[in-house]
């Protein structure tokens, strides 16, 4: 009895989404990033096409590195005060994209003005040729004031802007449409909620092909597996032809690592866990790998060492 053919053939494909625009495309980026395009479950080269490996963004924040854990900060000490230098450094470390978080605009921080935030965006665009992901504050009113200024400041650069949520999607959708950016659609760990948000965004004019989905993120051991399953379920639906779930998936890992005891607890406190220097970046890269296993295509990290580890591992695994 011969080994049966178990190859899966799907009717659906994950959308290819390109972020960034070079001078030929009307922007100033020196490189662009394209994610998605897979025709099967993650990394099964014997049955499907995988035109683009997962892309990695490194996060930089307008509020600096305060609150980031020490093992991560030690890499950033020289650049954290200067967004431009920080972004350039990320490029040097091998990031495919920059994720600029507008944390300073948060009312709990300095409440930086929309214009100042737009200037921050411009500064980063000048300092690096990488494509840009711009992340708001998660405070609806602030985002609605700040993001339109920023999409305008980055007009022509084909950035990814986030996040649009069920309760607050109209303003960001309109400004991304006006300035030709991609929209990051965030819905908490449920494919139904993601689909609903994609429908809402489509209803206000955003093309399904211009969205990237963020099912929210938990670190390995801290809710990761729920999101893992959400992504996996979405992937099955997408490949079976559900156009409302064919958007590539982003997870924002770096931020979550700071909450993980296994990653941040120093060796003196928890000697049984071994070297802290190893654990901290490894938890971040292991979380990233976990998400790639379920289907994520765009991963946001903080720690450059984790970036190196994850990229190396993906290279060995990606078909």
């Amino acid at each position: 009895m011969a080994v049966p053919d178990v190859k899966e053939n799907f009717s659906g494909t994950i959308n290819e989404v390109t972020i960034g625009a070079t001078s030929e495309e009307g922007g100033t980026r020196t490189s662009t990033v394209t994610i998605g395009g897979e025709t099967g479950y993650p990394m099964l080269g014997f049955e499907a096409e995988y035109p683009h490996p997962p892309a990695f963004a490194l996060e930089i924040s307008t509020a600096g590195v305060e609150g980031w854990h020490d093992e991560c900060r030690k890499h950033l000490a020289d650049v954290a005060g200067d967004l431009g230098a920080w972004a350039a450094k990320c490029e040097e470390w091998g990031a495919d994209m920059i994720c600029l978080c507008l944390d300073a605009a948060h009312p709990d921080n300095e409440g930086r003005s929309p214009q100042q935030c737009a200037d921050d965006v411009k500064r980063v665009l000048e300092a690096t040729g990488l494509p840009l992901l711009v992340w708001g504050t998660d405070v609806d009113e602030v985002d609605n004031n700040v993001l339109p200024k920023c999409t305008q400041a980055a007009a022509g650069e084909n950035c990814l802007f986030g996040t649009a949520k069920e309760d607050n999607y109209r303003t960001i959708a309109a400004s991304c449409l006006a300035d030709n950016h991609k929209v990051l659609a965030e819905a908490p760990s449920d494919i139904n909620l993601s689909k609903q948000l994609h429908i809402l965004l489509r209803d206000v004019g955003v093309d399904l092909a211009d969205m990237v989905m963020h099912p929210t993120t938990g670190a390995l051991g801290f809710g990761m597996v729920y999101i893992y399953t959400t992504i996996e379920r979405g992937r099955i639906a997408a490949l079976s032809g559900d156009r409302l779930l064919q958007q590539p998936v982003l997870v924002n890992i770096g931020k979550e690592i700071g909450r993980v005891k296994e990653a941040v607890s120093p060796a003196q406190a928890d000697p049984q866990w071994g070297s802290h220097e190893v654990r901290a970046p490894l938890w971040e890269s292991a979380s990233a790998i976990s998400y790639v296993e379920s289907g994520a295509e765009l991963l946001v990290l903080r720690n450059p060492e984790a970036l190196r580890q994850a990229k190396t591992a993906i290279e060995s695994m990606w078909p």
């Binding site: 190893v278 490894l282 890269s285 292991a286 790998i289 976990s290 296993e293 580890q309 994850a310 190396t312 591992a313 060995s316 695994m317």
Partner: peptide
């Protein structure tokens, strides 16, 4: 490190 990630 690669061992750890591949084991996952």
């Amino acid at each position: 490190v690669a061992q750890s990630l591949q084991a996952c």
